[in-house]
Amino acid sequence: MDEAKLTAYLEQYIDGFHGPLTLKKFPGGQSNPTYLITAASGKYVLRSKPPGKLLKSAHAVDREYQVTKALGGTDVPVATPLHLCQDEDVIGNWFYVMKYMDGRIFWDPALPDFTPAERGALYLEMNRVLAAIHSVDLKSHGLQDYGKPGNYFARQIGRWTSQYKASETETIDEMEQLMAWVADHIPPDDGQVSLIHGDYRIDNLIFHPTRPEIIAVVDWELSTLGHPLADLAYQCMQWRMPSASLMRGLDGIDRAALGIPTEEEYVRAYAERRGLTGITHWPFYLAFSFFRLAAIVQGVMKRSLDGNASNARAQEVGRLARPLAVKALAILKEYNVL
Protein backbone atom coordinates (compact mmCIF):
# COMPACT_ATOMS: atom_id res chain seq x y z
CA MET A 1 0.00 0.00 0.00
CA ASP A 2 1.02 3.59 -0.60
CA GLU A 3 1.16 4.78 3.02
CA ALA A 4 1.42 8.46 2.07
CA LYS A 5 -1.67 8.22 -0.14
CA LEU A 6 -3.58 6.36 2.58
CA THR A 7 -2.52 8.94 5.17
CA ALA A 8 -3.82 11.84 3.09
CA TYR A 9 -7.10 10.02 2.51
CA LEU A 10 -7.70 9.18 6.18
CA GLU A 11 -6.79 12.69 7.28
CA GLN A 12 -9.56 13.92 5.00
CA TYR A 13 -12.27 11.49 6.10
CA ILE A 14 -11.61 10.56 9.75
CA ASP A 15 -11.96 13.29 12.35
CA GLY A 16 -8.78 13.78 14.35
CA PHE A 17 -6.65 11.47 12.22
CA HIS A 18 -3.09 12.62 11.72
CA GLY A 19 -0.15 10.94 10.02
CA PRO A 20 2.38 9.79 9.32
CA LEU A 21 1.27 6.16 9.64
CA THR A 22 2.72 2.69 9.49
CA LEU A 23 0.88 -0.51 8.63
CA LYS A 24 1.40 -3.98 10.09
CA LYS A 25 -0.67 -6.98 9.02
CA PHE A 26 -2.22 -8.97 11.84
CA PRO A 27 -1.38 -12.69 11.91
CA GLY A 28 -4.15 -15.20 11.37
CA GLY A 29 -7.32 -14.75 9.37
CA GLN A 30 -8.02 -16.53 6.10
CA SER A 31 -10.28 -14.03 4.37
CA ASN A 32 -10.12 -10.26 4.69
CA PRO A 33 -6.60 -8.91 5.36
CA THR A 34 -6.53 -6.87 8.57
CA TYR A 35 -3.88 -4.30 9.50
CA LEU A 36 -2.85 -2.32 12.54
CA ILE A 37 -2.45 1.36 11.70
CA THR A 38 -0.08 3.23 14.00
CA ALA A 39 -0.40 6.95 13.35
CA ALA A 40 0.56 10.16 15.08
CA SER A 41 -3.04 10.41 16.29
CA GLY A 42 -3.17 6.86 17.73
CA LYS A 43 -3.89 3.29 16.72
CA TYR A 44 -6.59 2.11 14.32
CA VAL A 45 -7.49 -1.09 12.47
CA LEU A 46 -7.96 -1.34 8.71
CA ARG A 47 -9.81 -4.27 7.17
CA SER A 48 -9.91 -4.73 3.40
CA LYS A 49 -11.00 -7.12 0.72
CA PRO A 50 -8.18 -9.38 -0.49
CA PRO A 51 -6.61 -8.79 -3.90
CA GLY A 52 -7.47 -10.77 -7.00
CA LYS A 53 -10.64 -12.19 -8.49
CA LEU A 54 -13.20 -12.88 -5.75
CA LEU A 55 -16.27 -15.08 -5.50
CA LYS A 56 -19.59 -13.30 -5.79
CA SER A 57 -20.85 -11.79 -2.48
CA ALA A 58 -17.67 -12.79 -0.63
CA HIS A 59 -15.45 -10.49 1.47
CA ALA A 60 -18.21 -7.92 2.03
CA VAL A 61 -16.39 -5.34 4.14
CA ASP A 62 -19.22 -2.91 3.44
CA ARG A 63 -21.62 -5.21 5.29
CA GLU A 64 -19.20 -5.50 8.19
CA TYR A 65 -19.11 -1.72 8.39
CA GLN A 66 -22.90 -1.50 8.21
CA VAL A 67 -23.61 -4.01 10.96
CA THR A 68 -20.99 -2.78 13.41
CA LYS A 69 -22.25 0.76 12.94
CA ALA A 70 -25.82 -0.40 13.62
CA LEU A 71 -24.77 -2.25 16.79
CA GLY A 72 -23.39 0.82 18.52
CA GLY A 73 -25.31 1.33 21.76
CA THR A 74 -26.58 -2.26 21.98
CA ASP A 75 -25.53 -4.97 24.43
CA VAL A 76 -23.25 -6.35 21.70
CA PRO A 77 -19.72 -4.94 22.08
CA VAL A 78 -18.05 -3.94 18.80
CA ALA A 79 -15.07 -1.93 17.65
CA THR A 80 -16.47 1.46 16.59
CA PRO A 81 -16.35 1.78 12.76
CA LEU A 82 -14.93 5.11 11.58
CA HIS A 83 -15.00 5.12 7.79
CA LEU A 84 -15.84 2.92 4.79
CA CYS A 85 -13.88 3.47 1.58
CA GLN A 86 -15.28 2.09 -1.69
CA ASP A 87 -12.73 3.92 -3.83
CA GLU A 88 -10.34 1.25 -5.09
CA ASP A 89 -7.78 3.88 -6.12
CA VAL A 90 -6.76 4.46 -2.49
CA ILE A 91 -5.25 1.04 -1.64
CA GLY A 92 -6.47 -1.12 -4.51
CA ASN A 93 -9.65 -2.43 -2.90
CA TRP A 94 -12.55 -1.55 -0.61
CA PHE A 95 -11.71 -1.20 3.08
CA TYR A 96 -12.97 0.23 6.33
CA VAL A 97 -11.25 1.61 9.39
CA MET A 98 -12.33 1.02 12.98
CA LYS A 99 -11.09 1.98 16.42
CA TYR A 100 -8.31 -0.13 17.87
CA MET A 101 -9.45 -2.16 20.89
CA ASP A 102 -6.71 -2.75 23.44
CA GLY A 103 -7.51 -6.20 24.79
CA ARG A 104 -6.73 -9.91 24.68
CA ILE A 105 -7.36 -12.38 21.86
CA PHE A 106 -7.20 -16.09 22.69
CA TRP A 107 -6.36 -18.54 19.91
CA ASP A 108 -6.66 -21.74 21.94
CA PRO A 109 -10.16 -22.53 23.31
CA ALA A 110 -8.53 -24.68 26.01
CA LEU A 111 -7.18 -21.42 27.53
CA PRO A 112 -4.02 -23.04 28.91
CA ASP A 113 -2.87 -20.00 30.92
CA PHE A 114 -5.95 -19.79 33.15
CA THR A 115 -7.40 -21.46 36.24
CA PRO A 116 -10.59 -23.56 35.99
CA ALA A 117 -12.63 -20.74 37.56
CA GLU A 118 -11.23 -18.21 35.09
CA ARG A 119 -11.95 -20.48 32.13
CA GLY A 120 -15.52 -21.00 33.29
CA ALA A 121 -16.04 -17.23 33.56
CA LEU A 122 -14.69 -16.65 30.04
CA TYR A 123 -17.02 -19.30 28.60
CA LEU A 124 -20.00 -17.82 30.43
CA GLU A 125 -19.15 -14.45 28.90
CA MET A 126 -18.98 -15.95 25.41
CA ASN A 127 -22.38 -17.50 26.01
CA ARG A 128 -23.84 -14.20 27.24
CA VAL A 129 -22.63 -12.20 24.25
CA LEU A 130 -23.82 -14.80 21.73
CA ALA A 131 -27.29 -14.63 23.26
CA ALA A 132 -27.08 -10.82 23.16
CA ILE A 133 -26.35 -10.89 19.42
CA HIS A 134 -29.42 -13.03 18.86
CA SER A 135 -31.55 -10.73 21.02
CA VAL A 136 -30.87 -7.49 19.10
CA ASP A 137 -34.08 -5.73 18.09
CA LEU A 138 -33.62 -5.70 14.33
CA LYS A 139 -36.11 -2.97 13.47
CA SER A 140 -35.00 -0.45 16.09
CA HIS A 141 -31.39 -0.75 14.93
CA GLY A 142 -32.12 -0.61 11.21
CA LEU A 143 -31.20 -4.23 10.53
CA GLN A 144 -34.57 -5.57 9.43
CA ASP A 145 -33.35 -5.69 5.82
CA TYR A 146 -29.85 -7.00 6.58
CA GLY A 147 -30.80 -10.43 5.22
CA LYS A 148 -33.60 -12.07 3.32
CA PRO A 149 -36.57 -13.32 5.37
CA GLY A 150 -37.41 -17.03 5.60
CA ASN A 151 -35.83 -20.16 4.13
CA TYR A 152 -32.50 -19.40 5.81
CA PHE A 153 -31.06 -22.91 5.68
CA ALA A 154 -32.25 -23.56 2.13
CA ARG A 155 -30.64 -20.31 0.97
CA GLN A 156 -27.42 -20.95 2.90
CA ILE A 157 -27.10 -24.50 1.63
CA GLY A 158 -27.65 -23.27 -1.92
CA ARG A 159 -25.13 -20.47 -1.49
CA TRP A 160 -22.38 -22.56 0.09
CA THR A 161 -22.90 -25.45 -2.30
CA SER A 162 -22.44 -22.98 -5.15
CA GLN A 163 -19.38 -21.42 -3.49
CA TYR A 164 -17.91 -24.86 -2.84
CA LYS A 165 -18.39 -25.94 -6.44
CA ALA A 166 -16.84 -22.69 -7.67
CA SER A 167 -13.79 -23.39 -5.47
CA GLU A 168 -13.59 -27.16 -5.99
CA THR A 169 -10.08 -28.45 -6.64
CA GLU A 170 -10.84 -32.18 -6.31
CA THR A 171 -13.85 -34.44 -5.82
CA ILE A 172 -14.44 -35.19 -2.14
CA ASP A 173 -16.97 -38.01 -1.87
CA GLU A 174 -17.74 -37.29 1.81
CA MET A 175 -18.52 -33.68 0.98
CA GLU A 176 -20.86 -34.75 -1.80
CA GLN A 177 -22.68 -37.02 0.66
CA LEU A 178 -22.85 -34.28 3.30
CA MET A 179 -24.17 -31.67 0.87
CA ALA A 180 -26.93 -34.05 -0.20
CA TRP A 181 -27.86 -34.91 3.40
CA VAL A 182 -28.19 -31.34 4.68
CA ALA A 183 -30.20 -30.33 1.61
CA ASP A 184 -32.63 -33.21 2.22
CA HIS A 185 -33.02 -32.75 6.01
CA ILE A 186 -33.80 -29.06 6.56
CA PRO A 187 -36.00 -28.78 9.68
CA PRO A 188 -39.44 -27.18 9.48
CA ASP A 189 -39.30 -23.40 9.86
CA ASP A 190 -39.80 -22.56 13.56
CA GLY A 191 -39.98 -18.81 12.98
CA GLN A 192 -36.70 -17.90 14.69
CA VAL A 193 -34.93 -15.05 12.92
CA SER A 194 -32.15 -12.96 14.39
CA LEU A 195 -28.91 -11.24 13.59
CA ILE A 196 -26.25 -13.93 13.41
CA HIS A 197 -22.51 -13.40 13.41
CA GLY A 198 -21.67 -16.32 11.15
CA ASP A 199 -18.17 -16.97 12.52
CA TYR A 200 -18.61 -16.81 16.29
CA ARG A 201 -15.56 -18.39 17.90
CA ILE A 202 -13.11 -17.47 20.61
CA ASP A 203 -10.46 -15.89 18.35
CA ASN A 204 -13.03 -13.47 16.91
CA LEU A 205 -13.58 -11.99 20.37
CA ILE A 206 -11.47 -9.33 22.08
CA PHE A 207 -11.50 -9.59 25.86
CA HIS A 208 -10.81 -6.88 28.43
CA PRO A 209 -7.09 -6.79 29.41
CA THR A 210 -7.79 -8.12 32.91
CA ARG A 211 -11.48 -9.01 33.30
CA PRO A 212 -13.52 -11.90 31.79
CA GLU A 213 -15.42 -9.39 29.68
CA ILE A 214 -15.73 -9.19 25.91
CA ILE A 215 -15.02 -5.65 24.69
CA ALA A 216 -15.49 -6.33 20.97
CA VAL A 217 -16.85 -9.02 18.66
CA VAL A 218 -14.92 -8.75 15.39
CA ASP A 219 -14.94 -10.27 11.89
CA TRP A 220 -18.57 -9.78 10.88
CA GLU A 221 -17.97 -10.75 7.25
CA LEU A 222 -20.44 -13.66 7.32
CA SER A 223 -23.11 -11.93 9.38
CA THR A 224 -26.69 -11.83 8.14
CA LEU A 225 -30.24 -12.43 9.34
CA GLY A 226 -30.85 -16.09 9.94
CA HIS A 227 -31.47 -18.85 12.42
CA PRO A 228 -29.69 -18.25 15.73
CA LEU A 229 -29.06 -21.95 16.35
CA ALA A 230 -26.79 -21.98 13.30
CA ASP A 231 -24.50 -19.60 15.21
CA LEU A 232 -24.68 -21.69 18.37
CA ALA A 233 -23.89 -24.94 16.54
CA TYR A 234 -21.03 -23.26 14.70
CA GLN A 235 -19.36 -22.35 17.97
CA CYS A 236 -20.10 -25.78 19.42
CA MET A 237 -18.08 -27.38 16.65
CA GLN A 238 -15.02 -26.58 18.74
CA TRP A 239 -16.10 -29.17 21.32
CA ARG A 240 -15.89 -31.79 18.56
CA MET A 241 -12.66 -30.69 16.89
CA PRO A 242 -9.47 -32.45 18.02
CA SER A 243 -7.34 -30.37 20.34
CA ALA A 244 -4.14 -31.26 18.50
CA SER A 245 -5.22 -29.82 15.17
CA LEU A 246 -5.10 -26.64 13.13
CA MET A 247 -8.72 -25.92 14.15
CA ARG A 248 -7.82 -25.90 17.87
CA GLY A 249 -10.72 -27.88 19.28
CA LEU A 250 -11.64 -29.23 22.70
CA ASP A 251 -11.98 -32.92 21.87
CA GLY A 252 -9.52 -35.21 23.62
CA ILE A 253 -8.84 -32.99 26.64
CA ASP A 254 -10.21 -33.21 30.19
CA ARG A 255 -12.69 -30.34 29.98
CA ALA A 256 -14.14 -30.96 33.43
CA ALA A 257 -10.72 -30.62 35.03
CA LEU A 258 -10.12 -27.42 33.09
CA GLY A 259 -13.41 -25.87 34.17
CA ILE A 260 -14.78 -25.74 30.62
CA PRO A 261 -18.49 -26.54 30.29
CA THR A 262 -19.60 -29.52 28.27
CA GLU A 263 -21.36 -28.94 24.98
CA GLU A 264 -24.64 -29.88 26.67
CA GLU A 265 -24.06 -27.40 29.51
CA TYR A 266 -23.14 -24.61 27.10
CA VAL A 267 -26.23 -25.23 24.95
CA ARG A 268 -28.46 -25.39 28.03
CA ALA A 269 -27.07 -22.09 29.37
CA TYR A 270 -27.71 -20.45 26.02
CA ALA A 271 -31.27 -21.79 25.88
CA GLU A 272 -31.96 -20.45 29.37
CA ARG A 273 -30.65 -17.00 28.43
CA ARG A 274 -32.96 -16.87 25.42
CA GLY A 275 -35.97 -18.46 27.11
CA LEU A 276 -35.98 -21.54 24.91
CA THR A 277 -37.65 -24.62 26.35
CA GLY A 278 -35.58 -27.04 24.28
CA ILE A 279 -33.56 -27.45 21.12
CA THR A 280 -34.60 -29.98 18.50
CA HIS A 281 -32.80 -31.00 15.28
CA TRP A 282 -29.39 -30.46 16.91
CA PRO A 283 -27.67 -33.03 14.63
CA PHE A 284 -28.79 -31.03 11.60
CA TYR A 285 -27.44 -27.75 12.98
CA LEU A 286 -24.08 -29.38 13.70
CA ALA A 287 -23.90 -31.04 10.27
CA PHE A 288 -24.86 -27.80 8.57
CA SER A 289 -22.08 -25.98 10.45
CA PHE A 290 -19.47 -28.52 9.40
CA PHE A 291 -20.71 -28.39 5.80
CA ARG A 292 -20.52 -24.61 5.75
CA LEU A 293 -17.04 -24.51 7.28
CA ALA A 294 -15.83 -27.13 4.80
CA ALA A 295 -17.10 -24.93 1.95
CA ILE A 296 -15.33 -21.93 3.47
CA VAL A 297 -11.96 -23.67 3.81
CA GLN A 298 -12.29 -24.98 0.25
CA GLY A 299 -12.53 -21.34 -0.80
CA VAL A 300 -9.32 -20.69 1.14
CA MET A 301 -7.65 -23.50 -0.80
CA LYS A 302 -8.77 -22.03 -4.12
CA ARG A 303 -7.52 -18.54 -3.22
CA SER A 304 -4.21 -20.07 -2.18
CA LEU A 305 -3.79 -21.88 -5.48
CA ASP A 306 -4.77 -18.68 -7.30
CA GLY A 307 -2.12 -16.76 -5.36
CA ASN A 308 -4.34 -14.31 -3.46
CA ALA A 309 -4.77 -15.96 -0.05
CA SER A 310 -4.58 -13.75 3.05
CA ASN A 311 -2.70 -16.25 5.20
CA ALA A 312 0.56 -18.12 4.62
CA ARG A 313 -1.00 -21.36 5.91
CA ALA A 314 -3.92 -21.20 3.48
CA GLN A 315 -3.26 -24.54 1.77
CA GLU A 316 -2.96 -26.26 5.13
CA VAL A 317 -6.33 -24.83 6.08
CA GLY A 318 -7.80 -25.70 2.69
CA ARG A 319 -6.94 -29.37 3.15
CA LEU A 320 -9.40 -29.50 6.07
CA ALA A 321 -12.44 -29.69 3.77
CA ARG A 322 -12.31 -33.48 3.62
CA PRO A 323 -11.78 -34.17 7.37
CA LEU A 324 -14.55 -31.69 8.23
CA ALA A 325 -16.98 -33.54 5.97
CA VAL A 326 -15.85 -36.88 7.44
CA LYS A 327 -16.44 -35.54 10.97
CA ALA A 328 -19.93 -34.31 10.07
CA LEU A 329 -20.92 -37.72 8.72
CA ALA A 330 -19.58 -39.35 11.90
CA ILE A 331 -21.77 -37.03 14.01
CA LEU A 332 -24.85 -37.94 11.98
CA LYS A 333 -24.09 -41.62 12.53
CA GLU A 334 -23.57 -40.94 16.24
CA TYR A 335 -27.12 -39.55 16.41
CA ASN A 336 -28.46 -42.41 14.24
CA VAL A 337 -29.77 -40.08 11.55
CA LEU A 338 -27.52 -41.27 8.72
Score class of each variant (00 low, 15 high):
118 E>C: 10
97 V>F: 00
109 P>W: 00
113 D>F: 10
104 R>W: 00
115 T>K: 08
95 F>Y: 03
95 F>T: 00
99 K>D: 13
124 L>I: 11
100 Y>T: 04
106 F>Q: 02
101 M>W: 02
108 D>S: 01
96 Y>C: 02
99 K>P: 03
101 M>T: 13
96 Y>R: 00
98 M>F: 07
114 F>V: 11
99 K>R: 15
109 P>M: 02
115 T>A: 12
123 Y>A: 11
116 P>M: 10
117 A>D: 15
96 Y>T: 04
110 A>F: 04
115 T>Q: 06
123 Y>T: 08
102 D>A: 08
102 D>I: 00
96 Y>F: 15
105 I>G: 07
116 P>K: 05
121 A>G: 12
114 F>P: 10
114 F>W: 11
96 Y>A: 00
96 Y>P: 04
119 R>W: 04
113 D>P: 01
115 T>F: 08
122 L>H: 15
102 D>V: 02
103 G>Y: 02
115 T>V: 11
122 L>G: 10
95 F>N: 00
125 E>V: 10
101 M>Q: 14
108 D>F: 06
114 F>G: 03
102 D>N: 11
103 G>D: 00
103 G>T: 05
118 E>K: 15
112 P>C: 07
97 V>G: 03
103 G>S: 03
103 G>L: 04
99 K>Q: 14
109 P>Y: 05
100 Y>S: 06
116 P>N: 06
115 T>C: 10
98 M>C: 09
109 P>T: 00
116 P>W: 04
106 F>K: 01
105 I>W: 05
104 R>Q: 11
110 A>I: 05
98 M>H: 03
114 F>M: 15
123 Y>L: 12
97 V>R: 00
120 G>V: 13
96 Y>H: 05
97 V>L: 01
121 A>I: 07
96 Y>I: 03
109 P>A: 02
97 V>I: 02
112 P>R: 08
123 Y>F: 15
119 R>L: 09
111 L>E: 06
117 A>F: 11
125 E>A: 07
